[in-house]
Design a protein around this nucleic acid. Sequence first.
DNA 1: CGTATAATTGAAACAACTCAACACGCGTGG
DNA 2: CCACGCGTGTTGAGTTGTTTCAATTATACG
Lengths: 248, 248
Amino acid sequence: MIRRSLAMPKPQSALTRLSALAPLDDRAVAALSDAIAQAQPVRARRELMAEGNAIDHAKLIVSGWAARMRLLPDGRRQLLSFLLPGDLVGLCEQPAPLAVSTVVALTDVTACAAPPAAVSPTLAQAYATSRALDEGYLLAQIVRLGRYTAQERIGDLLLELLERLQLAGLASQGSFDLPLTQETLADALGLTSVHVNRMLQLARKQDSLHWKNSRLTLPDPGRLAQEVGRVAVRVSGEPIRHAFDVRP
Amino acid sequence: MIRRSLAMPKPQSALTRLSALAPLDDRAVAALSDAIAQAQPVRARRELMAEGNAIDHAKLIVSGWAARMRLLPDGRRQLLSFLLPGDLVGLCEQPAPLAVSTVVALTDVTACAAPPAAVSPTLAQAYATSRALDEGYLLAQIVRLGRYTAQERIGDLLLELLERLQLAGLASQGSFDLPLTQETLADALGLTSVHVNRMLQLARKQDSLHWKNSRLTLPDPGRLAQEVGRVAVRVSGEPIRHAFDVRP
DNA sequence: CGTATAATTGAAACAACTCAACACGCGTGG
DNA sequence: CCACGCGTGTTGAGTTGTTTCAATTATACG
């Protein structure tokens, strides 16, 4: 797979995502546009934040992929979540906040300071929804690692990425740019790259996915979701009933 | 192991924890005391919230143990986090929030509505710190499941519980009440109860822990932390430097 | 006591890991 | 333009950690 994405960065995807989370008023859009215009480049493999360091400012990912991760003393590495355009990192309200995870750029990234929530109630709302989604995705990651098989982990994660990229307007027809190595995927899925490789081959053979030149296509996301038992993450709106409601 | 804890519920532990997170003013203490006085009992195995349902009110755990969990359609179960006295659940700011996880009582529990953050800035601060800690513990759970061996998972989780219970004044001398079955532990650790059983025996043989009659003792938390490579979760204060700082 | 729930044990099967080697594409510098 | 090196992907064989299934023992609780 090719690492460096050939696609042009699309600075508007961050705005697309946040607008989808809450209807932003002019003030919010203006503040975001200003901030995005000031975005700074960060090279692949460089850190945007380091675990244990003070957080001076919440950041907004404008383009490129980053990840939250933890390194163990013996060199093992675990990716906690992926950060995509429009994602926020380091949002918190306690005084003197410390980063609870390291944030590393997986591709070349551009990121800017996230405008303060006080700018506009609609922006605060978008941030709140973003935080809630983040939490939902963390929980999904826990379930993947705790109870899913290797194949399910891969399928579920790719579906999640599709879902999230769609929100930012970065996916179409079950297809999107996946600028990761198998090793990075393995670090996110709690597997070895060798095993990820084998399971990917299996998935290709079963026609569950195509992945060539950093372009991933899921020919039938619905079927795949069925197979891995996946439900989309929802954090607001009307309550839903699950098939597995139990114990009244 | 004995399921039902014999110890008396201590309604003040919730207040102890929140006071430790931020210096609470009188207004905050009064609001919390009022709320705690109104706490409702919830029987073991009953749900405090159901995934996908609307959250009417954030809740504060006053006594007993609960857990956030997800059930898979095929019956597999994954505990996401434990909820101990003084823990908050369902804190969120977006409109029409939905629960992203089911919350189930592991023991008999008492819980109350969490007073609104608007009551006092110090209360809001305590909530913010609590949220940050929650996130830190979710990340720790991800690392456990993704990169730790079964033995490390057990050790690390027990150390985390010790750390958290100490904050609420519910542990002393590396010893605390652990009102869980091995099966519940397994559901939290992404293992089977059979394997948890075997690894517990091993840990006992190595004198890493004692667990009898629902009382757990870690004879040497420091050594255990060393063995599993654990660092305490911190979310505010002075930045720290890790041994594994990399790539300037 | 009797019954249900939890803990324990053993044997066999399986999923994922380790180690090591090799193939491939791509950019770099000779 | 080719040779080289490096990062990435691929493959095979053997090992390990964990699960499965089933049976047995211990423990709480009515």
